[in-house]
């Protein structure tokens, strides 16, 4: 059996007395694009902070490519690529310098980093911007650089936390298509969003509301199960009911 790209089991988390996640569990298989859909405040960012180990998960288990992210944190993080919601590029450095920094943090040597940077930028049609300072790039291009960066160390799992925030429609579409292509190539993807138009019918869907998983499964399957016509209705039905 293939090892899932991500396994989340019985994870709960609270900020003081306020419960942010309550017994959350789901799996992202390799080669699948899973959409973590939920309204603002559903717990998506908290879950991402737990997967990336910015927070610790005191209960439950999170495994990335089979590695427990608490007990084998380094192995788990080595197989994880992340695009955070906030911009994380150094604006005063060039695209190349930003990517090199990341490559070194993942232990890639100079020559190997060089090769992979060239390949990733070419894949995103960004080769001509390699020596450009990030400050001079538009929001859409900056996001592409962040995706290239997240892929440099060839992760098993790619996490994207609302990556289309602030992007225009063509950039959003390009990003959605690119990420789906990555999943077709075998990568596991977890994409957090509250925008239903970013979801494809064949995607895996995880609906999170008030810290609890309300539904998991392929989009078309969930639509059929709930006997509704569209994803918008799925969202409405699952996020209206009380916790």
């Amino acid at each position: 059996m293939t090892v899932p790209a991500l396994e989340v089991e019985h994870v709960s988390f609270a900020y003081g007395s306020r419960k942010a996640l309550d017994d959350v569990g789901f799996t992202v298989p390799p080669g699948r694009c899973a959409i973590l859909l939920g309204p603002n405040g559903a717990g998506k960012s908290t879950l991402f902070n737990l997967i990336t180990r910015l927070f610790d998960s005191p209960t439950g288990t999170i495994r990335i490519a089979g590695f427990d992210n608490r007990r084998k944190a380094c192995q788990a993080l080595a197989r994880l690529g992340v695009v955070f919601q906030q911009p994380t590029l150094d604006l005063d450095l060039t695209v190349d310098q930003n990517l090199r920094y990341h490559a070194a943090l993942h232990g890639l040597g100079r020559r190997e980093a060089d090769r992979r940077i060239a390949a990733e930028l070419a894949r995103l049609d960004m080769s001509q911007y390699r020596k450009t300072k990030v400050r001079a790039l538009s929001g859409g291009y900056r996001r592409r650089v962040e995706i290239a960066r997240a892929l440099l160390h060839r992760p098993t799992l790619l996490l994207l936390d609302e990556p289309t925030v602030g992007l225009d429609i063509p950039s959003r579409q390009a990003l959605v298509e690119h990420v789906h292509a990555l999943a077709r190539d075998g990568m596991g993807v977890l994409w957090a969003t509250h925008l239903i138009d970013e979801v494809a019918p064949s995607d895996e869907l995880i609906v999170l509301h008030r810290g609890r998983v309300r539904a998991t499964g392929v989009v078309t399957e969930i639509i059929r199960r709930l006997a509704v016509a569209t994803l918008a209705e799925v969202f409405e039905v699952l996020t209206e009911e009380d916790a």
Binding site: T52, L54, C74, A78, V82, F84, T88
Partner: peptide
């Protein structure tokens, strides 16, 4: 940390 580049450092696979 607010801007996020500290996050990039902290998710690197090193202790």
């Amino acid at each position: 940390r607010e801007m996020g580049s500290m996050r990039i450092l902290l998710v690197a696979p090193l202790p």
